[in-house]
């Protein structure tokens, strides 16, 4: 079973990659000279492409406390870690509402409609701006 950077393994992607990784080597013959006009670099040694496998840090949920924080944790962390929100500039309530609508309508975020007011309250609490 492949592992995903996100730490999530949505069901719809199971079987998406075939199997665990075995190290492999691929020889590369230099079949042709560099394209005309390219820089006269020293001759590149033959390249071997090796399987890659890495572990990535998982975002955690370091949201500062505030009204609605639980609604944000419930609904927003599937697709992105907290910094996506916390590094935004201060936005008006209208602008934040537009962002939340975009996440739901365009990016299909599975947000519970009952949580939307609390999510916007929290966004205004941490990164809100006057109209």
């Amino acid at each position: 079973m492949p592992r995903f950077m996100s730490g999530f393994m949505p069901r719809f992607m199971s079987g998406f990659m075939s199997r665990m990784i075995l190290p492999s080597l691929l020889g590369l013959g230099l079949l042709a000279p560099p394209a005309p006009g390219s820089a006269a670099e020293p001759e590149t040694p033959p390249l071997e492409l090796k399987s890659e496998s890495i572990e990535l840090p998982f975002g955690g949920s370091d949201f500062p406390p505030g009204p609605g924080v639980e609604a944000v944790k419930r609904n927003c962390l599937l697709c992105h870690s907290p910094r996506m929100i916390l590094y935004q500039p201060a936005l008006t309530k209208a602008a934040w509402t537009k962002e939340v609508d975009k996440m739901i309508d365009v990016f299909k975020a599975p947000v519970n409609p009952d949580d939307i007011p609390a999510i916007i309250d929290y966004l205004m609490h941490v990164r809100g701006a006057e109209d």
Partner: peptide, 8 residues
């Protein structure tokens, strides 16, 4: 966020 972290 749904990126394979291994490629064979």
């Amino acid at each position: 966020a749904f990126i394979p972290n291994a490629v064979d």
